Computed example of a mutant assay.
Amino acid sequence: RCCTVARAPGPTRGGASAQPSPASASAIENPCGTAPGIRARLCEADVFCLPGVPDEMKAMFDRDVLPVVRIQAGGRVVRQRLLRCVGLGESDLGEKIVDLMARGRNPEVGTTASSGEIGIRINAVAESVAAADRMLDETERELAGRLGSVIYGRDADTLAGVVLRLLRGAGATLATAESCTGGWIGKLLTDCPGSSTAYRGGVVAYSNDLKTGLLGVPAEMLAQDGAVSASVAQAMAIGVRERCGADIGVSVTGIAGPGGGSAEKPVGLVYIGVARADSVEAREYRFGADMPRTAIRLRAARTALNRVRLLLVEEESSFDGRP
């Protein structure tokens, strides 16, 4: 068995470890930096502690850890795949695939969660690359059958990248209207090279007068329903779609905290609107009053992108005649 740990004690000014090493440990030279790694034996496992700097850790892993893993695997091949999911909580998702995560199963299946997204790791051990890939394919098909559109991509895919790919496939464009997310949706989209082929642009309208002046949200609506409401989210989505000349408009308005909430409209309350030329819809989300401001904003941005993704997937399925 082999166990890897991502961090080692930091170096002192002279480059030596700031903490004593276990008596059974040996140092691992760092070819890219000053912080050494450590290899030790713990019970029946080899333990490797590597610096946290990604480039340094990868170089040391490839040179010093991977060969040991291969030897201990007895010549067998270890292949990994990551499925990316959004729109379902980790516990709810886990209930759907609990049998696939059984201890000792090959392929091994596990989950990790981060700000509204869940990664499903599949690790297969086999006698050859082809055999391992067949095992990965079979498990991925089973997961896809259970989770459906909750899975949005795999490995290096990003949610924004998938949305842009779907937009290009549909020959459609997108515009964004943001309040509490402050331009985060636009950032996620423009982080992707070539986003200008499908992303028209956006409006960050934080104040009510800009919601009216830039997006056409009626002042009476703001006075009656408040900026954080389904009606305002709908009006923002319609307004940005029309003003940016896009096929789809998506909007976000909410209370990111830590202040500004009330019993009726608590911190974490967010409305997301999506508008097409012939339809508009807004949905309410409650991300939790105790969640940090940054986490609420990131979850809102990702949820908005997922709303657009699901719309495009549904339209694609209808066009193809699929149920």
Rank of each mutant, 00 (worst) to 15 (best):
I97P: 02
L210Y: 14
V77I: 15
A227L: 08
L143R: 06
P36I: 05
K187N: 06
R81S: 05
A73D: 09
N123A: 14
G119N: 03
S318F: 15
E95P: 02
G249W: 09
P54K: 07
A59Q: 08
L93E: 00
R168M: 02
D92A: 13
R307F: 09
A198H: 00
D209G: 03
G213Y: 07
N208R: 12
G33R: 08
D55M: 11
V313G: 04
D155V: 07
D290P: 04
D155T: 13
V68T: 14
G245Q: 11
D55V: 12
D191L: 05
P107R: 11
D191Q: 10
D225H: 02
A102K: 10
A246E: 04
G119C: 02
M101D: 08
G288V: 12
P20F: 04
E281F: 04
G201K: 05
F61K: 06
S207K: 04
I151K: 07
T34S: 06
A289D: 06
P323K: 01
A25W: 00
A25I: 03
L159A: 09
T303H: 01
L83V: 06
V252F: 02
V203C: 11
G110V: 08
A170F: 06
A27C: 05
V280M: 09
G10H: 12
V228M: 02
G10I: 14
C180G: 09
L147F: 12
R76E: 01
D99M: 12
Y206N: 02
C2R: 12
P258K: 06
D46S: 11
C85L: 13
A172Y: 03
E242L: 14
Y271H: 15
R299G: 07
C3S: 12
Q19D: 12
L164D: 01
E284H: 03
C43Y: 12
R76C: 03
G257K: 00
K187W: 04
Y152P: 10
P67Q: 11
R322A: 14
L88A: 08
A8L: 03
E117W: 08
A8H: 01
C180H: 06
G89F: 02
P218S: 09
A144P: 00
A130I: 10
L188I: 05
D320N: 10
A230C: 15
T111F: 05
Q234R: 15
L167C: 06
E281S: 10
Y152K: 08
V98S: 11
R241M: 14
S229R: 09
G116D: 00
I118Y: 02
R141V: 07
V53I: 07
V270I: 10
E138K: 14
G169H: 08
T111G: 09
D278R: 13
S149Y: 11
M57E: 02
R302K: 15
L214W: 15
C32L: 09
E90A: 13
I238E: 15
G75E: 06
A102F: 07
G33A: 14
R134H: 10
G52L: 05
G268Y: 01
A35S: 14
G14I: 02
A130P: 03
A282H: 01
V47C: 13
I272H: 02
A175K: 11
G183S: 01
L50N: 03
T111Y: 07
L42E: 09
T212S: 13
L312A: 15
G245S: 07
G257M: 08
